[in-house]
Nucleic acid binder design. Sequence first.
DNA 1: CTGTTAGCGCATTCAA
DNA 2: TTGAATGCGCTAACAG
Lengths: 321, 321
Amino acid sequence: MTVSRVINRSGAISRETRERVEAAIAELGYVPNTLARSLRMKATQTLALVVSDITNPFFTTLARGVQDAARAEGFNVIFCNTDESETEQAEQLVALVQKRVDGVLLVPAASSAEPVAYLKRHKIPVVVLDRRVEDCLVDSVRCDSELGAYQLTRLLLDLGHRRIAMLSGPATVSTAVDRVAGYRRALTEAGLEVVAGLIFHGAYSPIGGRQMAQAALACTRRPTAFFAANNFIAIGAYQQLREAGLRVPEDVSMATFDEMPLTTLIEPFFTVVAQPAYEMGQRAMQLLLARLTNTAVGECQEVILPFDLIVRRSTGPVPAA
Amino acid sequence: MTVSRVINRSGAISRETRERVEAAIAELGYVPNTLARSLRMKATQTLALVVSDITNPFFTTLARGVQDAARAEGFNVIFCNTDESETEQAEQLVALVQKRVDGVLLVPAASSAEPVAYLKRHKIPVVVLDRRVEDCLVDSVRCDSELGAYQLTRLLLDLGHRRIAMLSGPATVSTAVDRVAGYRRALTEAGLEVVAGLIFHGAYSPIGGRQMAQAALACTRRPTAFFAANNFIAIGAYQQLREAGLRVPEDVSMATFDEMPLTTLIEPFFTVVAQPAYEMGQRAMQLLLARLTNTAVGECQEVILPFDLIVRRSTGPVPAA
DNA sequence: CTGTTAGCGCATTCAA
DNA sequence: TTGAATGCGCTAACAG
């Protein structure tokens, strides 16, 4: 139809017909069908963001960054949760391929490169966010978890702590692994022995945090500091410590990765490595859009964003024995 | 093709051909195209949730409820933010119609019934969530804001407060209006005069909260209690009070609507009317799905869910003058 | 049980 | 400047 030309401003149209068409559109309440358009164009103008849990403030902030950047270019974004499960993730990716999304931002549930390969096989551009995957031929945006953990551990060491429990995430997730690595490096450099019994892996969730804190408290010599690998672990661990009658920071110190926005506003408490979630989302989306529009983008990029180490009230000196 | 029958398990197929087809599918990495399917079927198996800000924990929790319920029935959900703007909302709805979503869950940016009518005109079922709209012929799920506000105000009155500042949301939003109404009723029933100068309307955001708190503090006789209409307002107001050198609850009391999940876990502080966000999302989705599948659902339903009034540390008696 | 025909609503290509 | 034919990938309805 000529209608198509009017709607898309493609081709030349006499003013008269255009007005006639526009009038008809208004009168009939006609709304073009994106499905048909996408089918024909082989492009959906839709991108996806796959995260573990859209309930985590770190990811919601990231999501806003993603969405704002996408909106600016006229793209829609679909959000998916994997709940940190590789099977869930695989299902989600299949669904996204079925929908023929133009690109995917992926916070991988594990470090396997298979999901990335899967998308590439279907010619869907991917940007890996927040975490590493084994294979390296992907665009990616993240912070340096190893360095962050190193600095946070240094901070605790400088305060005099020697028995620092590391409450990390799933051993399959790169951030969890890297944060343990940074922790180890700091200890080793300080000439201290790394005690395997003080390193824990669990879910990136309040429950995971509780369980790990409980296990850590069961050690013969109680740790004087707790390093939580993310905000949810910190929360759970904190609750567990309180229930065990311990005060933070008087009895034990705590430090963690990731801000907890509302908490921070009300009563800034946790000493954290604050990652720039919004910017991470934005940058990742920009990278993806560049792949989609620019033909010549060259090799894959690896963007490492800086973080802030913010010292607050949850850390203090080792209490007198 | 026969392929379609294999994939959809429709019609009868010999085991041999089925296996042959399945083998080919696996080998080629074939993934069916949802766009084409939806175009043909005139159904997308996709629903939408439109909220003001997906960053607000109240809405993320609600979103999880929505999504979990949808997933259970094989539906996908698209999330949209309106940032409390009617124009944004209108744009989002057009986009959703273009995408031919099968249904919409709407947290309306204003109480105008026009957006609902628009969707109905396009034969898209709607469930209105959390807020009222003027016209009533829609399914809806929410809590009784008037009652919640009434009880919260009563609580403050019982503690002896007489000058209670009401920091509410936009006057165009039903929850903001209803919460003011509940506040007024409590005062009136207690035989107190409602001071117009103590009722404020602003954005449902930390900034809004700050501004209203500032204005309230400028009153000749300072309020002894602050009633925030939602969590974001509470945060902003709290910050403003702190900066003014006031302690909560020693100098002033605060009460609010909506939990702040992480905050609550760490250091339960605010006295709140806690709405069951997750259930609200779930119920709304169930209602929508009923409309979509069941043909005979009868009249529109209005589900009012109960809330919890939780008393915590942010409220206390009026300090001695 | 399997294949064929047709059309969902759009945009590209070519003709008028 | 406009219209007609064609096909994107799928499924419903019918034939074989």
